[in-house]
Computed example of a mutant assay.
Amino acid sequence: MRNEDRDDSQVSVDVWYAGDPFGDANPPPRTVTVVGQAGESFVDALARTVGSPPEHYRYSLVYPQRGETRAWLGEVTPQVTLLGASAAAGGEVLYIDVLGRGGGPTPLMWDIVEAGLKASSVFRGGTAVVSALDAARERNKRAAAKDWLDVGVQSEPSMQLRQFVYEEREWTRKAFDRTFDLGKMAGPELLRRLHYRKTSTAPETWTDESE
């Protein structure tokens, strides 16, 4: 965890928030200032300021495009601090809604913050941005795995760790160990807890059999 996560200084972030997942503008989108301690989770600060998302929905970081269309940049997860959100805003308004988007690995705002990027630069994209996000995502996969290991291998994996593992329906053991760095005992334990089974020994391969 970064030192900034323990910072108790005050931080404010201007947020445009759309809390209606169906886009009916009821209640209509609004712009608010989210204020709190730098190390507070952005999720908690949002809930305190605009209210919790509707049941079964989560906050998402988005970016305005033409008209009312918004590009999805990543789900907001508890690892993102208010200070991290402020850095991602870069002095601009952060756009948050609760409409999740499907398809491919779930992007996370955590990756954007850890990469040291602004929301506007992620929207514009480019090779350097993609490389920075990929590197941050790899660090975050290991961090999520370590957090689970620190609590204990009998604990429930976090939603973020589950998402990271489920990015691949089939893992070779070599690739899984390289990605999550859990060791010879904890790695298979995590795979089993998430309903993967060893389906090959040469090379050792684990397959998601949850369906």
Rank of each mutant, 00 (worst) to 15 (best):
W206Y: 06
E167G: 14
R173K: 09
P107S: 10
V151G: 01
T106W: 08
T33E: 10
V80L: 11
A186S: 13
K146E: 13
R193A: 14
K118N: 01
G183Y: 10
Q154F: 12
V153L: 11
G103I: 05
F22S: 04
L108V: 00
T127G: 14
V76R: 02
T205F: 09
R173V: 00
G91V: 03
R193I: 08
P78S: 09
A71H: 12
T81A: 03
A18Q: 15
T106Y: 00
A45W: 09
A87E: 05
L149E: 14
L117Y: 02
V43M: 00
R48Y: 06
T201L: 08
R142Y: 09
G152S: 14
V129C: 11
E68P: 00
L108K: 11
G36Q: 13
Y166E: 12
A186K: 06
R173M: 11
G23F: 08
L99R: 07
L190N: 08
R101K: 11
S9D: 08
A135Q: 12
D7I: 11
V80S: 02
A89L: 06
E170H: 00
A38G: 03
A136H: 07
K198T: 04
Y59I: 05
D111S: 13
E40I: 00
P28D: 07
L83R: 14
E138G: 04
A85D: 11
G103V: 03
S200Q: 12
V11I: 14
G100W: 01
D181F: 09
T106R: 15
M159I: 11
R192N: 08
D8Q: 14
P27N: 07
P64D: 05
A18N: 15
G116V: 06
R178E: 14
D44S: 13
F164A: 15
A132L: 11
P54V: 01
M1W: 06
A119Y: 02
T106N: 04
V130Y: 07
A85L: 13
V13C: 09
V50R: 06
E55G: 01
T201V: 12
K118P: 00
R48G: 14
P105N: 10
K184Q: 14
W72V: 06
H195L: 12
F123Y: 15
S52D: 13
P54L: 00
M109S: 12
V113W: 02
W72H: 15
A135G: 06
G116M: 05
A135P: 02
L83N: 04
